[in-house]
Amino acid sequence: MINKTVKRVIVGSINVIKEIQGKLDIKFYKSNYFEYWLRLSMPYGIIENGVVVNRFYKPLGIGKGEWVDYKDYSYSILDEGFISDQKYFYDDGTAPYSNSQNFKAYMTKINSFLSEL
């Protein structure tokens, strides 16, 4: 059940940018806003205890700042046992906000991850 909550949060983030862009599919767009949105609202990886984090290593939607207790953000924690190892969807060399090719590869990974939830 928790996985469905994580999925809704990610799909909600995708829908926000679709609405802003006025398109059915998200398109790569080189801008500071788009980069910040990706870093803040979309998954960077899954760390210990199945916590889905953004590029700031915070729960999805939480920006830079002080330390957070992940347990307070259950919407960003996967069901126990869903994933056993840490997983990252991109690194500095494949950042989805750097070019359209990286963005497409990232979205393929995200859509695959969403289908597993």
Results as ranks from 00 to 15, higher is better:
Met1Ala: 14
Ile2Gln: 11
Ile2Asp: 09
Asn3Phe: 01
Lys4Gly: 02
Lys4Arg: 10
Thr5His: 08
Val6Arg: 02
Val6Asp: 09
Lys7Asp: 11
Lys7Ile: 03
Lys7Val: 05
Ile10Leu: 07
Val11Gly: 09
Gly12Glu: 02
Gly12Ile: 00
Ser13Lys: 00
Ser13Gln: 02
Ile14Pro: 00
Asn15Ala: 03
Ile17Phe: 01
Lys18Pro: 01
Glu19Val: 04
Ile20Gln: 05
Ile20Ala: 10
Gln21Phe: 00
Gln21Tyr: 02
Gln21Met: 06
Gly22Pro: 01
Lys23Phe: 00
Lys23Leu: 04
Leu24Phe: 06
Asp25Ala: 10
Asp25Val: 03
Asp25Ser: 14
Asp25Gly: 09
Ile26Thr: 06
Ile26Leu: 08
Lys27Thr: 11
Phe28Arg: 02
Tyr29Glu: 14
Lys30Gln: 12
Ser31Thr: 14
Asn32Trp: 08
Asn32Cys: 03
Tyr33Asn: 11
Tyr33Leu: 12
Tyr33Asp: 14
Phe34Arg: 01
Tyr36Phe: 03
Leu38Arg: 01
Leu40Tyr: 04
Ser41Arg: 07
Ser41His: 07
Ser41Tyr: 08
Pro43Phe: 10
Pro43Met: 09
Tyr44Leu: 06
Tyr44Pro: 13
Gly45Val: 05
Ile46Asn: 07
Ile46Val: 14
Asn49Arg: 13
Gly50Pro: 13
Gly50Asn: 09
Val51Met: 10
Val51Ile: 12
Val52Ile: 13
Val53Thr: 12
Arg55Ala: 14
Phe56Ile: 08
Phe56Pro: 04
Lys58Thr: 08
Pro59His: 06
Leu60Ser: 09
Lys64His: 05
Gly65Phe: 10
Gly65Gln: 10
Gly65Ala: 08
Glu66Gly: 12
Val68Met: 13
Val68Phe: 07
Asp69His: 11
Asp69Pro: 04
Tyr70Asp: 15
Lys71Arg: 14
Lys71Glu: 15
Asp72Ser: 15
Asp72Met: 14
Tyr73Pro: 15
Tyr73Asn: 15
Tyr73Gln: 14
Tyr73Ile: 15
Tyr75Met: 13
Tyr75Lys: 11
Ser76Asp: 12
Ser76Glu: 10
Leu78Asn: 09
Leu78Ile: 06
Glu80Leu: 10
Glu80Ile: 13
Gly81Asn: 11
Phe82Met: 06
Ile83Asp: 12
Ser84Pro: 05
Ser84Gln: 14
Ser84Leu: 15
Ser84Tyr: 14
Gln86Ala: 12
Gln86His: 06
Lys87Tyr: 15
Lys87His: 14
Lys87Asp: 04
Phe89Ile: 09
Phe89Trp: 05
Phe89Lys: 06
Tyr90Ile: 03
Tyr90Thr: 04
Tyr90Arg: 02
Asp91Pro: 00
Asp91Ser: 11
Asp92Glu: 13
Thr94Val: 06
Ala95Lys: 09
Pro96Lys: 07
Pro96Cys: 11
Tyr97Val: 02
Tyr97Leu: 02
Ser100Met: 02
Ser100Leu: 01
Gln101Gly: 00
Asn102Gln: 02
Phe103Lys: 09
Phe103Ile: 10
Ala105Asp: 12
Tyr106Val: 01
Met107Cys: 04
Met107Asp: 08
Lys109Cys: 02
Asn111Val: 03
Ser112Ala: 08
Phe113Gly: 06
Leu114Ser: 02
Leu114Thr: 05
Leu117Val: 10
Leu117Ile: 12
